[in-house]
Write a protein that binds this DNA or RNA. Structure first.
Lengths: 107, 107
DNA sequence: TTCAATGTACGACATTCATCGAAAGGAGGC
DNA sequence: GCCTCCTTTCGATGAATGTCGTACATTGAA
């Protein structure tokens, strides 16, 4: 069968995104690094981020980002790919992610 | 003597502001309400914010905002006045506070 | 089939956090 | 001096958070 994989990943709808949740998701050094890396280089596999935490910790951070609507994840073979939800965030909270990432660059 | 008041309030310098700290300070409903109220109506006394938490909790939130560099507080007689550090934040993290408050308005 | 690679799930742990109530303290008015 | 108003400090408490190690599941290759 082709449908016996892991449970499908849940992503909140655009209209359900909460500003407080998004800010909370971004208010962590490791997660901000993840988001910044995604912004610079597009979709990536989980293990390819320039952070120094245990794999299980990384999984935790991805879940926080995913449930806040900041990233989208999809399964493909051995990898789980992660991408920024730029457009959704821009539609819901115009300029917020953009300006935060710009400040992060110059910080 | 005129210098026997409470310890002077400490405010971080503009160049010492941390983006993660600012985001963390804003990632709370009560504090976001405080910041939004300040943005709409300028400087205010502590007890005049439209929030429903205990006075001691409010003091806690003001300290978080102050130490992150989001607000500035000054003593005057019986009151402690609180104001947004709009310009400092704009200089350090251009557009960040602005876009967050704009999104908060329409949320 | 066996193995290595990738990433998750679970449980544990120490820390931080938001919240409150009670007590205290400075400022101004009586 | 005394009292009231505004705000802080302290201590406590329950919840959330970031971290890890271990075990497990899935995939693709040897």
């Amino acid at each position: 069968m082709s449908s016996t994989r892991r449970p499908a990943l849940i992503h909140p709808l655009v209209q359900d995104l909460s500003l407080v949740d998004v800010l909370h998701a971004l208010a962590d050094p490791t997660r901000l690094t993840i988001v910044n890396t995604l912004h610079e280089s597009g979709e990536r596999a989980c293990g390819t981020f320039p952070v120094t935490v245990a794999p299980s910790t990384l999984t935790h951070h991805f879940r926080v980002l995913r449930e806040a609507g900041v990233v989208r994840q999809r399964e493909e073979g051995k990898h789980r790919w992660t991408a920024l939800r730029d457009e959704d965030l821009q539609a819901r909270f115009p300029g917020v992610l953009e300006t935060i990432l710009a400040s992060e660059q110059t910080a």
